[in-house]
Write a protein that binds this DNA or RNA. Structure first.
Length: 477
RNA sequence: CGGGGUGUAGCGUAGUUUGGCUAGCGCGCCUGAUUUGGGAUCAGGAGGUCGCAGGUUCAAAUCCUGUCACCCCGACCA
């Protein structure tokens, strides 16, 4: 078998990106389809990635003073209906329980699509004084949304996520919290997932149902479509007024609390796949890889090989997440399997190496091979893992930066997108009508108004009226 | 919810147009032997309610009716 032969089981990205994605998700053993439409079985390898995501983010939340709680799965229908915009946003995609045991329920129960209303109800009960604030709560759970069209990780009917819900004394504190979380998200994306993001604010049309403002981190997939990576919402005191979350301030005046909410989900794993993956399968950034290095013993049956491989695994387990493949498959099979699973480094050790006191390291991302003296193994492995993490980010960053095109007219906008999928940046007047027109004409939606603005002109790309906001547009998952 | 597609062993499929003997093949799986630096070889073996229900027929994977499920593309959304 020649080196150039692709793993047949995976469709080329260039041939059919959607099929490639499905193949990778299955072949890397991240998930299995389940008997329930639109729901997936998270297999050990896929769940291990989620556990690493949880561990990392959870520690960041706790460092910044947040506490974990757990709210019920069910929301009484009347509670969900309290906030008008919120219920309009979520009602069409709710699963509803109407029967308990054998009896029809007096009040229907909504399976949570998100838990704002439960947190609000609880906050109304426990917040009385400014001394009770801020409340900085987070929960890890799953939520259900009755999606029409589902895809593993990107859009499932039930998905795992974290949702943070906070209550503050002042509008300023709530805004600061919203932005602080957005920074946690963007740092996580860039430093851990090696995915560059554009930070910005959502337009009125795209913001969360019931929020005053929504901030987002947007990323670009390999096919140059957009993936909303995480959102952080400032609710102002809107929900507090609806749910009666009031406290007595230092001046003995009754005030409404200011709230935020924010979340990221298993969708991030879809992002990792679509940003870093290639035609040989998954490519995982070392910082999020459940296995960072896999040892493949060569000619395992030969005296001493397996022992040496195990010894190396032991040594390296102090500096990395290491695994060893001692199955009786052929080495070639093991190489391909390790590549499909996106393991950042592969270490080959065989009789010839042992004689010379060396081993072979191979990078997953670019397949570069290194012959390494066993004496300096720890240093080399540490350095390579750091290098791979950096290189993956740099590659993705270049992809993002080189695929954002400016447009100054709707005609130009359309013709660019007819040529290729990419992000478009334009000036925009702020009118939702223009946003809708662009969507209808190009199927691109506003991704965000980036914090880092540029002066591309002074008129709206759509209507030609004065404009002072730059918006990033793109076709989104 | 609209458009398209697919259901035959764990996976991928042939056979369906034109009904006919024991439903064929590849991968995978199990046993044994030889192998091992890019998905090894040979020998033997196990595995099937042909999505489901009804109908036509001497005979149905194949024809008819109904139904269910899943996938892809839209609209909606993390």
């Amino acid at each position: 078998m020649s080196k150039d032969i692709k793993i047949e089981a995976i469709t080329d990205m260039e041939t059919d990106f959607a099929q490639w994605y499905t193949d990778v998700v299955k072949k890397a053993e991240l998930i299995d389809y389940s008997p329930v439409r639109g729901c997936m079985v998270l297999r050990p390898y896929g769940y291990a990635i989620w556990e690493l995501i949880q561990k990392e983010l959870d520690s960041k939340f706790k460092e910044s003073g947040h506490e974990n709680v757990y709210m019920p799965l069910f929301i009484p229908e009347s509670l969900l209906q309290k906030e008008k915009d919120h219920v309009e946003g979520f009602a069409p995609e709710c699963a509803v329980v109407t029967i308990g045991g054998q009896e029809p329920l007096n009040e229907r129960l909504i399976v949570r699509p998100t838990s704002e209303t439960l947190f609000c109800d609880h906050y109304a009960n426990i917040i009385e004084s400014y001394r009770d604030l801020p409340k900085l709560y987070n929960q890890w759970c799953s939520v259900v949304r009755w999606e029409k069209n589902t895809r593993p990780f990107l859009r499932t009917m039930e998905f795992l996520w974290q949702e943070g819900h906070t209550a503050h004394e002042t509008a300023e504190e709530a805004e600061a919290e919203t932005l602080k979380i957005l920074d946690i998200y963007s740092n996580f994306y860039e430093n851990i997932l090696a995915i560059p993001v554009i930070k910005g604010r959502k337009t009125e049309r795209e913001k969360f149902a019931g929020a005053k403002s929504t901030y987002t981190v947007e990323s670009m997939m390999h096919d140059k479509k957009a993936l909303q990576g995480g959102t952080s919402h400032n609710f102002g005191d809107g929900f507090a007024k609806t749910f009666g979350i009031q406290f007595t301030d230092k001046n003995n005046k009754l005030q409404y609390a200011h709230q935020t909410s924010w979340g990221v989900s298993t969708r991030m794993i879809g992002g990792i796949i679509m940003v870093h993956g290639d035609n040989n399968g998954l490519v995982l950034p070392p910082n999020i890889a459940p296995i960072q290095l896999i040892v493949v013993p060569i000619a395992m049956h030969k005296e001493g090989v397996l022992d040496k491989a195990k010894e190396i695994k032991e040594r390296l387990s102090f500096i990395a997440r290491v695994s060893i493949d001692e199955s009786d498959k052929s080495p070639g099979w093991k190489f391909s399997e390790a590549e499909m699973k996106g393991i950042p480094l592969r270490l080959e050790i065989g009789p010839k190496d042992i004689e010379k006191g060396q081993c072979v390291l191979v990078r997953r991302d670019n397949r570069e091979k290194y012959t390494i003296q066993l004496s300096s193994l720890e240093n080399e492995v540490s350095a390579l893992l750091i290098k791979i993490q950096k290189d993956l980010f740099a590659k993705a960053k270049k992809h993002l930066d080189s695929n954002i095109r400016p447009a100054t007219s709707i005609q130009e906008f359309e013709s660019i997108l007819n040529e290729e999928t990419c992000f478009i940046k334009t000036m925009w007047c702020g009118d939702g009508a223009c946003e809708l027109e662009i969507k209808e004409k190009t199927s691109a939606t506003s991704r965000c108004m980036p914090f880092e603005q540029e002066e591309l002109g002074d008129v709206c790309v759509c209507c030609g009226k004065p404009a002072n906001k730059m918006v990033i547009w793109g076709k989104a998952y």
